[in-house]
Simulated assay, not measured.
Amino acid sequence: MGKEEQVEEREVLDSIFPEEITDISDTEYRISIKLDIPDDDGNDEDEASEPPTLILHVRYPDDYPDEAPILDLSPPQNAIPYPYFAVSADKERLLKGLEDAIQENMGMAMVFTLVTTLKEEAEQLIADRKAAAAKEREEAILAAEREENKKFHGTPVTPETFMKWREGFLREMEENRQREEEERLAELKKAKVKEPIKLTGKQLWERGLAKGDEAEYDDNIPTEQVERLKVEA
C-alpha cells in the first residue's frame, strides 16, 4: 500500500514541479524551491541580491505515508549569499517548523504541503529579518537626528540649574550696580574740580579790577588772583 502511494505522489509532483524536481532513486528525490522576496523596502543591497533558493531532499521510508518522510535541506551549488538567509544556518529551524505539518498529514501524501509550508516559513523568516533591519536603520537615523537637534535646544531647566542661573544673574546685577555707582561718583568729583575762570583784560577793566594798562597786556589773569587783589585793595 505504501509503495503505491509513493509512486502516485511522485507522479503528481512531476506535474507540479517539472523543472524543479530531480530523482536520486525510486524512493529519493530533491526539489528546488526558489523563494519569492518582494522588493518593498528600497534597500539597494536587497535589490542587487538574487532571491535565495533551497533544496529539499526527500526520502521515503518503507511505511510512508504512515511514517514521516526523511527530510534534509541544502543550498544549491555556488549559491550567491543572501543578506537575510542562509540554508546552513537556518536549516534546523526550518525543518523543525515542518513538524506540525507532518503530524497533521500523517497517513496522507504530504510532500506538496511540506514544500508549501517550507517556502512560506523561509519567506516569513526573511521578511521578519528585513523588517528588523529596517527598524534598526530607522532607529539609527532617529538617534542621529536627536543628537543633531540637541545642538539647537538649550539645557533643560531643573531646580538646580535655575538656582545656579539665579545666583549668577544676581551677582552680575550687583556688579553692574557697583560699577554704575562708581562711575556716577567719579563724574560728580570731576564736576566739582574746575579750572579757575580767567577774565580778559576788558572784563577786568569793566569790573574795576585792572590797574593802569594791566588789562591791555595781561588777559590771562585768573579770577581768583583778581579777587584776592580786590580784597587787599
Score class of each variant (00 low, 15 high):
Met1Thr: 09
Arg10Met: 10
Leu13Ile: 07
Ile16Gly: 00
Phe17Thr: 04
Ile21Met: 15
Ser25Tyr: 05
Asp26Cys: 03
Glu28Ser: 12
Ser32Asp: 14
Ser32Glu: 15
Asp36Val: 15
Asp39Val: 13
Asp44Arg: 07
Asp46Gln: 13
Pro51Glu: 08
Leu56Met: 11
Leu56Val: 03
Val58Gln: 02
Arg59Val: 03
Asp63Lys: 11
Glu67Met: 15
Ile70Gly: 00
Asp72Ser: 14
Asp72Gln: 11
Pro75His: 05
Ala79Cys: 08
Ala79Tyr: 07
Ala89Gln: 14
Arg93Glu: 15
Ala101Cys: 15
Gln103Asp: 11
Asn105Ile: 09
Gly107Ser: 13
Met108His: 04
Val111Trp: 01
Thr117Gln: 13
Leu118Glu: 06
Glu123Val: 04
Ile126Pro: 02
Ala127Gly: 03
Lys135Gly: 00
Glu138Phe: 05
Ala140Asn: 08
Ala140Met: 14
Ala143Arg: 12
Arg146Cys: 00
Glu147Trp: 00
His153Val: 15
Gly154Asn: 09
Thr158Gln: 06
Glu160Asn: 02
Thr161Trp: 04
Phe162Gly: 00
Glu181Gly: 01
Glu181Trp: 05
Arg184Ile: 06
Glu187Val: 10
Lys189Thr: 02
Lys192Asp: 07
Glu195Val: 09
Pro196Gln: 07
Ile197Tyr: 05
Gly208Lys: 12
Glu216Ala: 07
Glu216Trp: 11
Glu216Pro: 03
Asp218Glu: 15
Asp218Gly: 02
Gln225Met: 09
Arg228Pro: 01
Leu229Phe: 02
Ala233Trp: 14
